[in-house]
Design a protein around this nucleic acid. Structure first.
Lengths: 174, 174
DNA sequence: TCTCTTTGGTCTGTTGATCGAACCAGAAGG
DNA sequence: CCTTCTGGTTCGATCAACAGACCAAAGAGA
């Protein structure tokens, strides 16, 4: 763990979490993984992040056991079950940030889809407003919400994400 | 917002959240607020943080509307409703970090207490395992868990937190 | 197979954030 | 009024982030 990123004398689960996902960019990289981003160049195009920092973060996430690197050479990065467990936290942060800065107009919405058919919208507590269950990421579809700003960026990842997309499914960017 | 702390071209609620609570120490300061810490010197004693950074973080949280500064001079800092809304995220992070690094032995446990009487333990989803509801922080009591390390630190805040304590109630440290 | 382009990085100099320690003004207590 | 404590500010040193140049290996095409 690099200097300045850990909290060695905090006996607390939050501190342990932040040592893994608390650095700048790390949670946005994981968000992109949930949205289906897999490749170095796609992370780079979608986040305005320097290559050196992206390299360091991906390595840290792999060695923390949150990502696995698949294939030699031009690899792809995939979420491990431990990382998928973080979904409620990421969803909670997205909801809280939207409520705080864009009330009533979320930038992105998440929907429970069963076996093909849509069930309902996900509420602030991560539960489906129709059936009341808390669906797994693999049963969630995401779409741009009413607060989205389509003029903000125009990279291949952002373009692909303007269509509805199921979480964890690889994005097709070309 | 200081340079290097925001994500201006990310059209996403998570990015908006991280601009407010994503800096080093910020979430641990808010955690301490939920645990009842109110005063500058108590934050300083409980977190190993430099005074300059603590001053900057408290100011940023006040101007973001997450803390209010009560009283001139030797003030105390209190959570606003917007900050209390963050509780599910903090609880999720605590659970995830404990599961990842200390499985089966959480460092701190949270319990639903109704009107005086205890109802049940809070599970990973923030719901009471006895009654199934998601209690507000004011109806939650916290205690050190089986994974706690009582030898790690010995400041007044840590000592006060070795006894059961209701969230948001001011801690008595002397 | 050979060449060309793309991908997935590394390296470098500069800028910004964090740190520990010393210092200090105003509040609280006597 | 005097003393102590609290809640900071200031300073120099160290550490991390950034933009941009550079580069080796993988993949695509002829």
């Amino acid at each position: 763990m690099a200097l300045g990123t850990d909290y060695p004398r905090q006996d607390c689960g939050i501190a342990r979490s932040l040592e893994v996902v608390g650095e700048r960019w790390t949670l946005l990289i994981l968000r992109d993984c949930f949205l289906g981003v897999r490749r170095f160049s796609d992370f780079e195009a979608h986040l305005d992040i320097s290559k050196a920092v992206l390299t360091a973060r991906l390595e840290a996430l792999v060695s923390a056991g949150l990502l696995t690197r698949v294939g030699r050479g031009h690899a792809s990065y995939e979420l491990t079950p431990e990382a998928i467990d973080l979904w409620p936290v990421l969803h909670g942060l997205a909801q809280w940030g939207d409520r705080l800065t864009s009330p009533g107009r979320p930038r992105r919405t998440f929907h429970h889809v069963g076996h093909g058919a849509e069930c309902g919208l996900l509420g602030g507590d991560g539960r489906c407003t129709a059936c009341g269950t808390a669906p797994l990421p693999s049963d969630i579809e995401t779409r741009p919400g009413p607060g989205a700003d389509p003029t903000l960026r125009d990279d291949p990842v952002s373009r692909a994400l303007r269509a509805p997309h199921r979480l964890l499914e690889p994005l097709v960017t070309r």
